[in-house]
Design a protein around this nucleic acid. Structure first.
Lengths: 208, 208
DNA sequence: TGACTTTGTCACCGAGCGGTGATATAAGCA
DNA sequence: TGCTTATATCACCGCTCGGTGACAAAGTCA
């Protein structure tokens, strides 16, 4: 173990970036439990006092991190990469793709998963900020593609419910394989789930 | 603040119970983050060394706690208090009641909610034990009331999905009011949700 | 060059943590 | 009564935590 703090370059900008990205890697590796001033400074290989100098403290650093991340899938990603093709699909096809893409998007964002769990245990700068981002993104998506007709509140709630279920199952699957007879560690299990989502969608809105 | 450790009665059984119940109240009040040897001992007003003597450590104490709790709703509770009436209902009526009762059961078990979140962040004696209890309970319930016909795998998955959604929304509602346009802090929001569940059930299995 | 600012290092604080060995004291029994 | 044992307390260890003030060294500019 070489102690290379002594050769630290002197560049505020780079140091800030190192700290911010340390938050990300630490969050991905250890979860929000391991997120402290000492740990972040260690991870960034930077003195912890700089966290106070540059960000006013850990919460400032965390919210700086929150502003730079690709935490939540964009409408584009949820639509599957091509908005126009998506817009031309039938409603049931749209919803089916939405479910599929949402599962994929969540699975490949371990930090987002970590934060979603965090949101359930406490409220702080980051979780509040992320909550706002997500809520806006969801509403925007609804308005863009799904709720063309009015008084379709039930449909919106069904979609929200499916989204909640997906969120829960993805979050659980990170530590626990089995849920209600569903094997969340296998592709087959997730296919069964997507199938069920399609059944729900078909049953709820028909072939529209 | 009186320091009443000195008048502590000398009764192993009672002391054990005090420690075990301290785990429960601490879990309910502070969540699993505040659950440490010192904190539990303080809460029980007992010296922490007794945790090691009587339970071999915190994990032993926690798993002793896990064996004594009413964490997971029984089949009876999920059925609504009367198994025979429930058994006579139509399938869709059963599922609808199941959803309603599951929401109620979860809402009134803050410690269970805490543990469910805990399960998503790490695996330890308690979470593994609780996971087993719940999984068995769910399977048992399926077999008892829902899966009379074979090859109804889709239906089981739909039910699991609804259960997952309920779990997620109840857990979130403890810290966050809004989700996908759904107001989780109001009865109206939950009624909207139950309505959506009914829509899903009707759409999936008809009036059977 | 010398003065001043910016950037990074270091040493230290009090507090809380998990964990343990020595000790006090109440209970039970001869 | 005295002896033993079960039960509970206390003092202390090493560690990490969040946080701060003093200082070193590089950069900047006159």
């Amino acid at each position: 173990m070489t102690k290379n703090k002594h050769v630290q370059i002197r560049n505020k900008h780079i140091t800030r970036k190192r700290l911010i990205s340390a938050v990300g890697s630490l969050l991905a590796r250890e979860g929000f439990n391991g997120l402290g001033v000492n740990a972040v400074a260690r991870e960034a290989n930077v003195d912890k006092v700089l966290i106070y100098r540059y960000f006013g403290g850990l919460s400032g650093l965390i919210s700086a991190y929150g502003k730079e991340g690709d935490f939540w899938p964009s409408a584009l990603e949820l639509a599957g990469g091509d908005l126009q093709t998506f817009a031309r699909c039938s409603l049931s096809e749209k919803l089916s793709r939405l479910g599929h893409n949402f599962i994929k998007a969540l699975k490949k964002r371990p930090v987002t998963c970590e934060i979603m769990i965090w949101e359930m245990t406490e409220r702080n700068e980051l979780t509040i900020e992320l909550e706002t981002i997500r809520e806006n993104s969801m509403i925007e998506f609804y308005q863009m593609f799904l709720l063309t007709r009015d008084n379709e509140q039930d449909l919106q709630t069904v979609v929200t419910l499916i989204g909640a279920a997906i969120s829960y199952l993805v979050l659980r699957s990170r530590n626990i394989d089995l849920y209600g007879g569903l094997d969340l560690s296998s592709d087959a299990g997730w296919q069964r789930l997507e199938k069920a989502i399609e059944v729900i969608i078909q049953g709820t809105i028909g072939n529209d």
